[in-house]
Structures are given as C-alpha cells and as structure tokens.
Nucleic acid binder design. Structure first.
Length: 211
DNA sequence: ACGCGGATGGCCT
DNA sequence: GGCCATCCGCGTA
C-alpha cells in the first residue's frame, strides 16, 4: 500500500471551509478486523456553528451535536432519515462547533467488500458516491461516533504525503451550494460550501454549472 | 431524462 | 408532532 501519512491535527483545527477543501485527495481507512477498505475523498461540505442555519449545531450544544463542539479530528457520525448514516470530520477550535461532511470517496482498496456491503449495484466509481452510500460501503455507523480519526485503528484519516496539496496533476477543485439544506434559507443555502474534484466520476452528483 | 414517494427513527420544539 | 446534511425504484416521456 502507498505510504499514507497521518494528517496533522493542527490542519483540522482551521475553518471548516478550509478543512473541507484540504480534505480533498486524502483517504479514509476503515479496518473492521476483516480487511482494509480505503477510499479517497473527492467531495465534502463545510458546516458551522449555531449561526449556520444548515448545521446540526444550529440548536446549540445538544447530546447529539456535542461532539461538533469538541476538539478537531474526531468523527461525528449520525443517522439521517431514520436509515442512513453520514460521516463528518470535526474541525475548528475546541469549544466552537464545526465539521466537514464527507460526501463521496473513490474506492482505492477493498472494493469487493464495498460492493458486497452495498448490494453490488452500479459501477465501482459510484459505490461510495454519496454520504450514506460511503458509510454503507465502508461499514460506518453510530458505533464509531466520537472516535479520534487520527489515532483510532477502526477508522483513520490519512494522506499520500504531507501538506495540503494532495490532488493529482490536472485535478481542480470545484465549489457549489450544499446539498439538501434548502430549509436553511437563501443566505445559507446558497453559500459555496460544497467542495469537489471537478469532473470526478465518484462525485455524488454534478456541481451546478456557473451561471 | 426527468419527477415522485416510501422507508424509518432519532432529534428538537 | 414535525422534520430531516438520503437513496432507490417506479412511473411518465
């Protein structure tokens, strides 16, 4: 396997929008004891604190969201629509709520396990293209909520090489509005807080083309 | 190529 | 009691 380096926690302690952009190209390593599954992050979204009407932290610190207010580098895993899980990377300063939703990964290793976990539909590139799909493909659920993504063997964040430049030559970052949060109102629903690798086959859905 | 609705349960008011 | 940071399958073209 390629020499993945652990991410720097200080890097994750920055603003959610910076972290969301810089996580593109890093990898999620899942080890459930029965083999590794690795996915390269190709799509993210930034979420803020109580001021962000689209964030789970909009209601302040609650039992579900308290992890978002903690130190950077932990996993925030929640259940949405009663049946799907979503994975976030907690970021920002300790005491402030911020997180990055991981929306899509490109399968790198353990692809057959991912396909099996998902019921074997679609192409390899689309097996983890979507926040709930990637959790199903990697076997991520609430039992992993709160773990430290920089030290825990079950679920780890790493990167090929150090530093923020992790995209392949020719790859470009594309931005757009966050998905599925129109209830938050125009001011928040239109912010370009969704980040992706332009044109990548593993994106959950296309980015709207510039007006 | 679209649009629509059902599944399903935790969380907040 | 109402609302979701979703996905899939079915319907009409």
């Amino acid at each position: 396997m390629t020499p993945f380096e652990p991410l720097d926690r200080a890097e994750l302690a920055g603003a959610a929008t910076d972290v969301a952009r810089n996580l593109l190209g890093t990898v999620v390593v899942r080890d459930d004891g029965a083999g590794l599954r690795v996915g390269r992050i190709v799509e993210t979204e930034a979420y803020g604190g109580p001021e962000d009407r689209a964030s789970h932290a909009r209601a302040g610190r609650t039992s579900r969201t308290s992890i978002m207010f903690g130190p950077a580098g932990r996993a925030y895993v929640y259940l949405v629509y009663g049946l799907h899980h979503c994975l976030n990377v907690v970021c920002g300063a300790d005491g402030e709520a911020a997180a990055v939703l991981v929306r899509a990964v490109q399968p790198i290793a353990g692809i057959e396990r991912m396909r099996r976990a998902r019921g074997a539909a679609g192409s390899d590139a689309k097996v983890a293209a979507g926040p709930a799909r990637l959790c199903e493909a990697l076997g991520i659920d609430r039992s992993l909520d709160g773990l430290d993504l920089l030290t825990d063997d079950r679920l780890r964040l790493a990167a090929p090489g150090t530093g923020p430049a992790r995209l392949e030559p020719g790859e470009q970052v594309v931005v757009g509005p966050r998905v599925g949060i129109s209830y938050a109102g125009p001011e928040w629903a239109t912010r370009p807080w969704r980040f992706g690798i332009a044109g990548h086959a593993a994106l959950s859905r296309p980015f709207p083309t510039a007006a």
